[in-house]
Nucleic acid binder design. Structure first.
Lengths: 217, 217
DNA sequence: GTGAAAAATTTACACTGGAAACATGAGTGC
DNA sequence: GCACTCATGTTTCCAGTGTAAATTTTTCAC
């Protein structure tokens, strides 16, 4: 994704790669200044272009934010898959993906919030929708290994939803600072620990087609 | 919470109850126009006051939003407790609270988003912090019944975090339309179903001090 | 070359939240 | 009764935002 003008020569009237450059600048500003302080004009200024130039490519601010969120989901999916080692069992792989999920939210809080904000970006957009689905698919495939779907009654979908809810909820709460400043000094536990402390979660072999979560003594 | 001027007489220079009136107007506008379209000026206009009047009571827009979020958390806690019948067992009560959680998010999506937005409101504020903790406490007490904390190693806190993550994650995803428009037409499941389909979750008696979650056949 | 369309700019507008100076009036001390 | 004080609101102004419309510049197809 090169986002600089095509040749490295002096300023030209046509940027040549403005669309990608705006997305890249938006991602950078998101990290630097946060979601609340992000503005269309500032993104355009960083690329060195008038503040109405993005309209040609994205229609409106929402369109630009949608494109940024789509790129975010692509990186999100990559973060989920980064720790997945093929030789590991389904449980280890689940741990790795969950760790990637939470780590991504922690490392890119503003982008993460944007990605899941129905207000700020248009989730009907095909590009964003596809990127989000790809990211979800990583978790879904891991759930598939755990729940082969023989149980009937939508057990497969339910398992996906459960996993996603846990990981997303934890990431969201940690991201918004809710877990750290809890009622009676709630320490932050990694979602990885959360999973790891489910003793009967399979042990790494899938010799039993059964996932039992024992929380209490 | 009466938010109208003290007597019903004609307009007076001093509102008399501006602080509560602004919070109430903000809550109403949040429902009507959504979080993105909420503005300080419009809230003030609805109360019939200049747009700088709120500054005396809340300092800034963030201060006002913080107060609105605090009131939101109070109603949230009430929604969690609404379905709790004392004669029910811990699992039924958990179901009821989870149902209230998701229902609240669904019925008041804009307010729910505001409440958990670290950008928009100040979670250091004592009033907001107390209200949020009270709301969290409802879930925590239910977790306590399930996990008496004898297991050591922070099992109690971990159980709270797990429950909260599940419920909050599900509510958040459903709220942002992620679950409905999932990858391959993911149907929306109530969080209540999610819990109810954990067959070994205690059965309504707590005769066993053990919570086993069996997801698969 | 020439003409059409894409890409950017300039300008203008309605709106936002905040700052500063001012107006009002409720309450207190006498 | 009366002045003084200070919380409460208003007016005015400002920098900043996103969007729309008209205009300029460039590219590309023919």
């Amino acid at each position: 994704m090169s986002a600089s003008p095509l040749p490295d020569g002096p300023r030209r009237y046509h940027h040549g790669n403005l669309k990608a450059a705006l997305v890249e600048a938006g991602l950078a500003l998101l990290e630097e200044r946060g979601l609340a302080n992000l503005s269309l004009r500032e993104i355009a200024a960083r690329v060195g272009v008038s503040h109405t130039a993005p309209k040609n490519h994205f229609g409106s601010l929402k369109g630009l934010l949608t494109a940024i969120a789509a790129e975010g989901f692509r990186r999100h999916a990559a973060a989920l898959e980064a720790g997945l080692r093929p030789e590991d069992g389904p449980v280890e792989r689940l741990h790795a993906a969950a760790d990637g999920y939470v780590r991504f939210a922690r490392d890119h809080p503003a982008l993460f919030r944007l990605m899941f904000s129905a207000d700020l970006c248009n989730h009907e957009d095909p590009d964003l929708s596809a990127a989000a689905s790809a990211s979800y698919g990583v978790l879904a495939r891991l759930a598939e290994r755990l729940a082969p779907g023989k149980g009937g009654g939508g057990g497969q979908t339910r398992m996906e939803t459960l996993l996603w809810s846990i990981v997303h909820g934890y990431a969201m709460l940690a991201n918004e600072g809710q877990l750290a400043t809890g009622p009676e000094g709630n320490p932050v536990h990694g979602i990885l620990d959360l999973f790891r402390h489910w003793p009967d979660l399979g042990g790494s072999g899938n010799r039993r087609n059964r996932v039992a979560v024992t929380v209490l003594s």
